[in-house]
Design a protein around this nucleic acid. Structure first.
Length: 555
RNA sequence: UGCCCGAUAGUAUAAGGGUAGUACAUCAGAUUUUGGUUCUGACUGUCUUGGUUCGAAUCCAGGUCGGGCAACCA
């Protein structure tokens, strides 16, 4: 059974640290800033952090990096917690950087006392100018050599609210000539007279990311602090603070963030889509947010599996969104009951079938289900709705659906032959007339006739109308962020609302969030927000693979 | 032209000095009462130039290309 599973580089590090005894147990953390909703990129990080702890018997904290009160809100905290739980993970400790503000303040005082930090009165512009550029060394601030006492006093006054926003900052005293920009006397604290979602007006000075994140890691005894590649250049600073403070030596490791084609992943851009109403909220089913994907019908299992398949490395990557869709279909195929729904209806009349008769035919719920999905009864009658695209007046080559004179199987029912059709004044086909073969009933077929095509249908008298929303990718180009304004590349057809599709009666009671496969059309999920009892609204989660569509493309 | 990081099929990801493998995608076929599922087969790859070695995707050096870093954001 020992199938060799190759380890990713982080698993190797952890395994090494465990086997050498560097740590007895590992402790990771997932550290979102509560300034937006979680997206599929975060899922990679969540699966990584919680997965590592799961595999190696460690723990994972959920910690909100809430050091910037002006962008953070409780709404985001709540959504983040819900999304992490939905993904299937439970955190060990729920923490907030803001819980540590007093402690971090103490760390700052300690550094001042050690002569390693100073209060700078320079303006933001002056500080930026003094930093130099990547190729030109910076210059020391004229406030760099204030005495410890003066710094201590000033810093205390900052905390006490004596100064306005931007009037002063606390800076670490490191090296203005460092080739690493982050080591050129980075800002540790800034003044913000703003209401914090948790601490309210208790503080008017807030630590910067670099002076809060590593300190929080250390306070929580995080052994492996895993973040994305862009923080790599911060690592020397991360280490510097910890070393100067002599606190628990958490170690930072970086991995390449998830990128996916046909979408955008930055919180800033996603927020724009929401605020400028290109989508209907963070949980719009077209959004790559976890809440959007959930609403669309993606399952947590599919997303976890996706994160597992994409792997973890340090090289930049762009994952094909097709892989995500594959994972979604793979899971939905196993768990979704099959149902019939006609999205673009055309009436079929079976001329030789008795009127006022309804048969109830057996239909399998899900032939792929792990322990037999069972059957349901499906009403059948003289008049049916079929899919308009399943009839061609002049059949294409390799066409094996309905056409004049052609025979098809009605799924779970009879074989029918198309005898004629009717058009309206504008040349639109309004009805087709067929005859059925009584001996061909599914499961009792003695007709000996073999047909190549099988189509789905819904019986007219018992059909229930329902709204169905067809989603397509949000952007029409692979890389919307490549050049220009990403919003120019929004796919105008990313949402098509079918006001009145006909669904089989059993679908009328679909529960919000319930998944189905509409036979031959795709996987659909009852919208968890808009559905009302007895009147579900369905979201198309993902289409089925379509070999015929491919055939047409080839021409 | 400073510092840091990276480079394996179309896209991802393995191989840790010894047969370049897997998944998705693509193509071909089989099965099929979903043109779905399942199954079979095919296809295409180590950025480059040197070096070390019996042997290099792997180690070393130079180059090329790509990414990151100059927010009182995280």
């Amino acid at each position: 059974m020992s199938e060799e599973k190759s380890l990713n580089f982080l698993e190797e590090i952890v395994q090494e640290d465990l086997s050498t005894g560097k740590y007895q147990k590992i402790h990771t953390r997932f550290p979102p800033e509560p300034n937006g909703y979680l997206h599929i990129g975060h899922a990679k990080s969540i699966c990584l952090n919680f997965g590592l702890a799961d595999s190696y018997g460690g723990k994972t904290n959920l910690r909100f990096d809430d050091t910037n009160p002006v962008t953070e809100e409780t709404e985001y905290v709540d959504s983040i917690k819900a999304d992490v739980r939905w993904l299937g993970f439970e955190w060990d400790g729920e923490h907030y950087a803001s819980d540590y503000f007093e402690k971090i303040y103490g760390f700052a005082v300690e550094l001042i006392q050690k002569g390693l930090a100073y209060v700078d009165d320079s303006s933001a512009e002056e500080i930026a100018a003094g930093k130099g550029t990547p190729t030109v060394p910076g210059e020391n601030s004229k406030f760099r050599n204030r005495s410890k006492e003066e710094n201590l006093n000033l810093f205390e006054e900052m905390r006490a609210g004596k100064y306005r926003d931007g009037e002063k900052v606390l800076r670490a005293k490191i090296d203005m000539a460092s080739p690493n920009m982050h080591m050129r006397d980075p800002i540790m604290y800034r003044i913000k007279h703003a209401n914090h979602h948790r601490t309210g007006s208790t503080w008017c000075i807030y630590p910067m990311y670099d002076f809060a994140h590593g300190q929080s890691d250390s306070i929580e005894n995080i052994t492996h602090s895993i973040c994305t590649l862009e923080f790599e250049v911060h690592r020397p600073l991360y280490n510097w603070y910890i070393e100067q403070l002599g606190i628990f030596p958490s170690h930072q490791y970086e991995f390449a963030r998830l990128n996916m084609n046909y979408t955008v992943m930055s919180k800033r851009k996603l927020l724009q889509l929401v605020q400028e109403k290109y989508v209907d909220g963070w949980d719009d089913p077209r959004m790559p947010s976890l809440s959007g994907m959930r609403r669309r019908g993606y399952t947590a299992a599919a997303i976890r599996n996706f994160c597992d398949r994409i792997g973890v490395q340090r090289r930049e990557n762009i994952i094909d969104i097709g892989l995500l869709e594959f994972c979604v279909r793979e899971d939905l195929n196993k768990i979704s009951d099959r149902r019939m729904a006609v999205l673009d209806p055309l009436k079929m009349v079976i001329t030789n079938y008795p009127a006022d008769t309804t048969e109830h035919l057996d239909s399998e719920n899900n032939p792929e289900a792990e322990n037999n999905g069972g059957i349901r009864k499906l009403p059948f009658s003289k008049e049916l709705w079929i899919e308009r695209e399943d009839f061609m007046e002049v059949p294409a080559k390799k066409w094996f659906r309905l056409a004049p004179g052609a025979m098809v199987r009605l799924k779970n029912a009879y074989i029918v032959k198309c005898d004629s059709f009717t058009k309206d004044g504008e040349g639109n086909i309004t009805e087709i007339q067929c005859t059925y073969i009584p001996e061909s009933r599914s499961g009792h077929d003695t007709s000996g006739i073999n047909v190549k095509g099988t189509i789905h249908w819904v019986s007219v008298p018992t059909a229930v109308p329902a709204e169905v929303r067809l989603y397509d990718r949000l952007f029409k180009v692979e890389d919307p962020s490549a050049e220009g304004n990403f919003k120019d590349f929004i796919n105008p057809e990313s949402l098509e609302i079918v006001q009145k599709a006909w669904i089989e009666p059993s679908l009328a009671n679909a529960k919000p969030g319930e998944h189905f496969q509409f036979i031959r059309k795709g996987y659909f999920t009852a919208d968890e927000k808009l559905s009302v009892p007895g009147k579900p609204i369905f979201n198309r989660t993902v289409t089925l693979k379509d070999a015929w569509a491919k055939e047409i493309k080839k021409g």
